[in-house]
């Protein structure tokens, strides 16, 4: 089976071609399922953050080129495609709409089925595929999302249940805002993490873990005020806020792990690329007797490969869909996982 997948949740428009010879959704692995191409264009970060309308314009403009490259690199003729997959949500409405329209028109012209994919589940499934994990405790950290989730079965229905999560903003958004605030290069989470990796002195900041949930807003306010009031240097502020935020995240995950006792930990999402965070997780996992896995860098941030991999599983599981419309508020626990 060959699937073309489109991702357009936030700052990235991506197109990927995935092929699979797996016989069942459960059997999908690196051995039988391959990402043939995974092309993308990212809207550059600016010192003002993102404006939804402009992101959507960017995606509409770049889509044709990205699609062409994805087909060419995978040596795929449109007639060879068995389905068209796309991100249904969660994400920014304007952006989701672009991907949906693109996928829908391809599906109609080629007369192949349309497969809606949950973006959050896709982040997890691409991690399972790449790392070979079966039933991990998932830590999903990206711009808009900070969730600690695991597969659970409630009345014979399997789902990813969110066991701990942020109560306000996602950790990536938190890092992005500080990256802009401190004029890092680039002015986002990437720039901030680079600055923080240079080290510094730790100063006391709010540390908000509420049971298994987290909150970042208090930390954000405190650190911007401390720098504004010249109570600390920019460098120490970057270092301390990252140390604090990541420790909170790892502690909340450790608390969940102590309840669920999963043997595997899987770190996914854009923020999973942070070496600092990866090291902290592996130390915690060792302490708790679990194995820790990190999604490979090329599948960490938003891209269409993960949508394709998840679509393969959905098709093999024979999933049916009542609604194809984009949904900004789709949650990871909104959907059944038949595999």
């Amino acid at each position: 089976m060959r699937i073309l997948a489109i991702e357009s949740t936030a700052h990235t428009i991506g197109v990927s071609v995935v092929s699979s010879s797996a016989r069942s959704a459960k059997a999908v692995s690196l051995r039988n399922t391959e990402v043939l191409s995974n092309e993308r264009a990212k809207y550059p970060s600016t010192d003002r953050g993102y404006i939804p309308r402009q992101l959507a314009d960017h995606h509409a403009k770049k889509y044709a080129g990205v699609l062409e490259a994805a087909l060419r690199k995978s040596k795929t003729a449109p007639e060879e495609l068995d389905c068209i997959a796309y991100t249904q949500g969660p994400g920014i409405g304007h952006c989701l709409r672009v991907g949906f329209v693109a996928a829908n028109s391809l599906s109609k012209t080629l007369e192949v089925p349309l497969v809606p994919v949950n973006h959050a589940i896709a982040h997890v499934e691409v991690g399972n595929w790449a790392c070979g994990t079966k039933d991990p405790l998932v830590i999903y950290v990206s711009g808009g999302n900070t969730q600690i989730a695991a597969k659970t079965e409630v009345r014979e229905k399997r789902k990813y249940a969110v066991l701990g999560e942020t109560l306000d903003i996602g950790i990536g958004n938190f890092l992005d805002v500080l990256g802009r605030e401190f004029k890092c290069a680039p002015p986002d989470a990437v720039g901030l993490l680079e600055e923080a990796a240079k080290g510094g002195n730790l100063f006391d900041l709010p540390y908000t873990v509420k049971g298994v949930d987290l909150a970042f807003a208090g930390l954000l306010t405190a650190v911007t005020r401390a720098v504004g009031g010249k109570k600390t240097s920019r460098r120490d502020a970057c270092f301390s806020s990252v140390q604090n935020a990541f420790a909170m995240l790892v502690e909340a995950s450790e608390r969940v792990l102590c309840h669920t006792r999963n043997g595997e930990l899987l770190l996914v999402g854009g923020v999973a690329q942070s070496k600092t965070l990866q090291e902290m997780y592996s130390l915690m996992a060792r302490e708790q007797g679990a194995k820790s896995f990190v999604v490979p860098a090329q599948y960490a941030g938003d891209q269409a490969g993960m949508i394709g991999i998840t679509a393969v599983k959905q098709v093999l599981a024979g999933m049916e869909y009542g609604n194809y419309e984009p949904n900004q508020d789709l949650r990871i626990d909104a959907q059944e996982i038949p595999w």
Partner: peptide, 13 residues
């Protein structure tokens, strides 16, 4: 002591 936490943060907490 939590290995993953910065030692100062860990001691404070």
């Amino acid at each position: 002591r939590k290995e993953y936490r910065h030692p100062v943060l860990d001691l404070n907490l």
